[in-house]
């Protein structure tokens, strides 16, 4: 009797736990599911019946329209995906490199005002891009970099977050490693390349993911920077489709918007899935 009640109690607890988990998962997955399902219905069906929870038969048409181009989109989706990819990669790689170098200087070189400089960099964390968007635009425009990848990427590369993470990481690297390397005849550059970079791979991966997703999702900056559809990113493409909605006249192409959204989520998801192991390792423990 006793044993039975214990088992029942355990079952009940398990049931409760799982229902919490399942409802949480549903909550997170549902929007994506709706987008995916709705993208497989015709615009008419969507307009008449609203959001769809089950697969429809219009999927092929939607995605071929997106990928091959249509009047609705000023650039084919592959072009926008490519642009987003370039933006995301350039943003992430640039940020990792710049912040590694900045943190290296801050941690390993005793130059005057190193500490105030660090806090100045750190303070820029408090200022999002939007705050400095007008001066940044001004600079890029004066340099004739509007509608170029350089103009899209470079002004965003300086990263207080990245510098901060790398600084903390470098500070946890035992000082004896540097001393051993000095005795072994490694100069500052050799030490950075031979020792510090290999030690920070997991950290680099972690920051790369965060920055890639952030770069991929950039909206305001590319919107201001680009007037040429050749340089539109996927996020801008999504907005464009919705713009026709406001203008009226034609039937809103919700299926295209949903399709683009689904496509836009795939690369960041892939990056996270691929780098996940390193990401967790980078945040939790390090090889030292």
């Amino acid at each position: 009797m006793q044993v039975k009640t214990v088992i029942n109690k355990k079952r009940l607890q398990a049931l409760f736990r799982h229902s919490v988990l399942i409802s949480g998962a549903l909550f997170l997955v549902m929007p994506l599911w709706i987008a995916l399902m709705s993208s497989t219905h015709s615009p008419e069906a969507l307009f008449r019946e609203g959001l769809q929870f089950l697969p429809g038969s219009y999927g092929y048409e939607t995605y071929s329209q997106i990928l091959m181009g249509s009047d609705l989109l000023s650039a084919p989706a592959w072009r926008m995906l490519l642009n987003s990819l370039i933006l995301g990669l350039g943003f992430a790689i640039g940020k990792v490199i710049i912040s590694m170098i900045a943190a290296y200087a801050l941690v390993y070189f005793r130059f005057p005002l190193a500490v105030p400089l660090f806090w100045m960099i750190f303070m820029t964390l408090l200022l999002p891009l939007e705050v400095r968007i007008i001066p940044s635009y001004e600079v890029v425009a004066k340099l004739n970099l509007l509608n170029s990848y350089t103009g899209l990427i470079v002004p965003l590369i300086a990263s207080a977050t990245g510098t901060f993470f790398f600084r903390q990481f470098y500070r946890s690297v035992p000082a004896e490693l540097l001393e051993a390397a000095r005795i072994d005849g490694a100069g500052p550059l050799r030490f950075f390349i031979d020792i510090l970079i290999p030690l920070s791979t997991t950290m680099m991966a972690a920051i790369f993911i965060i920055m890639f997703v952030a770069g991929w999702n950039q909206y305001l900056w590319p919107l201001l920077m680009t007037t040429d559809p050749e340089y539109y990113s996927i996020v801008i493409g999504i907005r464009q489709v919705f713009q026709t909605l406001n203008e009226g006249g034609t039937l809103p192409q919700f299926n295209i918007a949903f399709g683009l959204t689904v496509l836009a989520t795939i690369p960041p998801v892939l990056v996270v899935v691929i780098f996940q192991k390193m990401f967790v390792k980078g945040l939790v423990e390090t090889e030292k």
Binding site: I183, I195, K288
Partner: peptide, 19 residues
Amino acid sequence: EPAERDIAMVFQNYALYPH
């Protein structure tokens, strides 16, 4: 510089390059 003194040092925590 340490490297120019022709010395070798063994550290308390060994300071081996982990990678």
